[in-house]
Design a protein around this nucleic acid. Structure first.
Lengths: 119, 119
DNA sequence: GTAATGGATTACCAAGCGGTAAGGCATTGG
DNA sequence: CCAATGCCTTACCGCTTGGTAATCCATTAC
């Protein structure tokens, strides 16, 4: 199984995938470089072999967090935060009451990204 | 354990704790009721015995996500989202660039929350 | 065409973790 | 005081899952 691109990334799936540090690191790398292949990713993880990376990528892909574009013999992976935001959004909203401060910072980032005074 | 704020509630710890659906449900219940005892919590989980709840509570407490107040022979648990926001904040900020749309939705949710949509 | 490269897939192993069960301590009530 | 209650703690079991190794397939180079 696991051949679906899972249009419905549940909060449950999201957190399960995000639970692994390596997977978050991969997402991190992807966010920083935009697009990477398995080999390039593997270069950042000295303690892991390609198979492991591939496996994590598969999990990420199953959760819809990354997209894979085949280019010749390589596969280009890119982050797809849409699924993340879709799954996290409702959860974040639920704790809105406890998050006033964090939310305010978030809103600040959304409406005022560049500079302007107080941080 | 007097580690009620666990100075080092890393993003790693946060996600590990949040990875379990039962634990998120507990947080959910706590957020909804404000304060609950182990027994009350257990009442919401027919498929679990108190020990299990207690264990999850311990994990939550270790991560600083909940606070425990002893009241007589019972222990009152309450959510403490401060650790959550502290750990999630930086992570959320890191993906800010990918979240523009989500951020807007978040703002919308913050001012006009729909209703319960737990998956 | 064949050889080489790179990724995906599968099988396997080991560690971590969720859940249960049993035991112990503290508080409350008679 | 002793008995009962409620929670926490510890030991244990089984499943899930991260990681590796080996194999296969596709693409590219010669």
């Amino acid at each position: 199984m696991a051949d679906r691109d899972a249009p419905t990334t549940t909060t449950d799936d999201l957190f399960r995938v995000l639970a692994d540090p390596t997977r978050r690191r991969i997402l991190d790398l992807l966010a920083d470089h935009g697009t990477l292949t398995v080999g390039e990713l593997a270069g950042h993880f000295p303690g892991l072999v390609s198979s492991g990376i591939s496996k994590h990528l598969m999990a990420l892909r199953a959760a819809g967090l990354v997209t894979a574009t085949k280019q010749g013999r390589n596969q280009l992976y890119a982050i797809d935060a849409d699924a993340m935001s879709q799954a996290l959004g409702p959860w974040l909203a639920r704790y809105e009451a406890y998050w006033t401060g964090a939310l305010a910072r978030l809103r600040d980032l959304a409406v005022d990204p560049p500079h302007d005074g107080t941080a």
